[in-house]
Amino acid sequence: MRRRALLPAVLSLLLLAALGLHLFLGRDAPPVTEALTALSRGEAGSYDQSVVLFQRLPRALIAIYAGAMTAAAGCVLQGLVRNPLASPSTLGINSGATLAVIAGVFLLDLGLEAQGFAALVGAVGGFLASLAVTRLAGRNNDPRGLSLILSGALVSMLLVGTTNALMLSDPMRRADFLSWVSGNVNHVYIDRLYAFWWIGVLCLLILGALSRALTLILLGSEKAASAGVNVRPVSTLALAAAVVGAGSAVAICGPIGFIGLVVPHLVRPFAGANVALALPCCLLLGAGISLLADFGAREAFHPYVLHTGLVMDLLGGLAFAMIVKRFYLSPAVRDQA
């Protein structure tokens, strides 16, 4: 128990280390003294200082936000829909938000703020569409929730396809959004972070306040209700906060997969099932991994910079296969079924 309580501190150190790596190291890194001067003064007196202040720092902040929000959303979603494969990228949330932003820009000429709002609406829409398809498929005789994940995949395919069709329709604008749509941490999106960060903070506050009730819901809705939880309103509010929080991350830097799916699995063996502890740990680890992935994307093929989203998708595919193997294909599980 005492070891578990130390976990957030350990993960905070990890996050700080990742942040230091991201800001101060790598090829073409400005001298550390220059970087520190820029950060402490908050203004750039030289080219090196402006690189730190206007490229590396914004990039780091975006990576932290996107990683933290998707990991937190994945943690809550996996608990509430009782499915180890649930995450913003597997339940139509990311693709819904992406389509909404692209449709808003290409068809309605939405401005920045309106794009953010569209992303939130799209995230909720994509999630509800996945649930609706599951309902159609009949999930009563599906104890392990495979149909929910398959529905999410189908809905995502439809939404991504529609997004691509829209992108193809307008070559002029396509160039502006080509990198955003594949999930790209980039300092040019910092104005989006300034516009939307409060949404994530609000969602996290809501989830934090509900964390004890969410832990009880893991025991089953009747057990939770008998212990004093109003299961329906709590579940609805928590799902909304998770989906909207994940949508706000998409609004900033496009859909980033992997983290929402995998981080909760990494955290759970150490933090346990208690949401009040697992949630902050997911936040910290999600932000840290996101920073490291972005660092890797920036440095791996120097001087070319990879899309962070692509790096994540590569890692995510591997992790997805491992989770499927563990929860669905391992001999012990098959014997149960």
């Binding site: 128990m1 832990t215 893991l218 025991l219 089953g220 057990k223 759970r268 346990g272 099932a273």
Partner: peptide, 11 residues
């Protein structure tokens, strides 16, 4: 009754 993995008795 169903208990999620990794939850301790104390929790």
């Amino acid at each position: 009754s169903f208990c999620p993995d990794y939850m301790t008795l104390g929790e």
